[in-house]
Design a protein around this nucleic acid. Structure first.
Length: 297
DNA sequence: CTCCAGGAACTCC
DNA sequence: GGAGTTCATGGA
């Protein structure tokens, strides 16, 4: 995969390292970071500032390139190339989806949504974030995740990032399961998590004691088995499990069905349509349809 | 005031 | 095994 980007080199803006990446195929950074799959990015001018995998970076898209500030060539190869899905061939993914489904609304959604990519987020962060997402709206999900991170995460150095929106601010990594478990349910509840506090604690408990093991879960091939595995956690049902697997466990076959997706399927698809029709990239199709129903329809 | 938000557990039948 | 209710919170 790194041969795609063989010519990437670390450049500097003052003492701030950055990389410039010419990507292959369609890429829509704004939609990718603002389509509801992630909750820790904010727009700063023409760039996006955010924390992922315990690091603070600023990203912008310009003339067929992504520029990632506060990243060296090594960070790019080890973290950001995969995180931003720059190592995947979305032209091929789109072709595969269109081979499997010619529903006119889906074709329209794909054409409008082309460039959305599914990030590769941290597994625990995905599990926890989508527990918080249940019966909640995106602005408030972000608030709660910020509060959790501020209270229990590790502070991140903002050195050299002052000119990218970090001036006078503090940034924190997403807290580990251990940190959340140690904080206790009452504290988690005090961060306005509501009825989800006990679910977050149960997830942290099972993550820490090995009942839910990231490596083990990633080994499971059958989607239904992986969903069942995550549903061992109280507060994780089919939809949250699907999101967590899609966004945090390297899978592209889960198809999360939420209130928006129910509307789409109800309005534009035949009654007995199964999302498995989309095949191994069903999750990408879901993102196109989600974007279509929320922002285009 | 009511309704809703990237739902899931619980309680009935 | 479905249908209805409940759960915190905040914004529209």
């Amino acid at each position: 995969m790194s041969e795609f980007f063989i010519n990437i080199k670390t450049e500097y803006e003052g003492e701030l390292p950055f990389v410039r990446v010419r990507y292959e195929g369609a890429y829509n950074l704004a939609k990718t970071l603002d389509c509801g799959q992630c909750f820790r990015w904010e727009r700063v001018g023409d760039a996006w500032l955010g924390v992922a995998h315990g690091r603070l970076v600023s990203v912008k898209q310009v003339d067929g390139e992504l520029i990632i500030y506060n990243s060296t060539k090594e960070d790019f190869e080890n973290i950001w190339c995969h995180y931003f899905a720059l190592d995947e061939d979305y032209d091929e993914i789109d072709r595969e989806l269109l081979r499997n489904c010619q529903n006119p609304t889906f074709v329209k959604a794909l054409n409008k949504g082309r460039g959305i990519r599914i990030l590769h987020q941290d597994a625990w962060e995905s599990v926890c974030s989508f527990i918080i997402s249940q019966n909640n709206n995106i602005p408030r999900i972000k608030k709660i995740i910020d509060a959790l991170s501020f209270a229990l995460g590790k502070q991140i150095d903002t050195k050299n990032m002052e000119n990218h929106g970090a001036s006078g601010r503090e940034f924190y990594s997403f807290p580990t399961a251990e940190a959340i478990l140690n904080a206790g349910e009452d504290f988690i509840f005090s961060l306005k998590t509501g009825f989800r506090a006990k679910y977050i604690i149960d997830a942290a408990q099972k993550w820490c004691d090995g009942t839910v093991n990231e490596a083990e879960l990633k080994q499971i091939e059958a989607l239904d088995d992986a969903l069942d595995y995550l549903c061992k956690v109280k507060g994780i049902g089919l939809k949250v499990a699907s999101c967590a697997l899609l966004f945090g466990f390297e899978r592209r076959d889960p198809f999360p069905v939420d209130v928006w997706m129910k509307r789409v399927l109800d309005k534009y698809f035949e009654k007995d349509f199964s999302p498995s029709t989309f095949g191994k990239y069903a999750g990408v199709a879901q993102q196109y349809l989600f974007d279509f129903e929320r922002n285009q329809g």
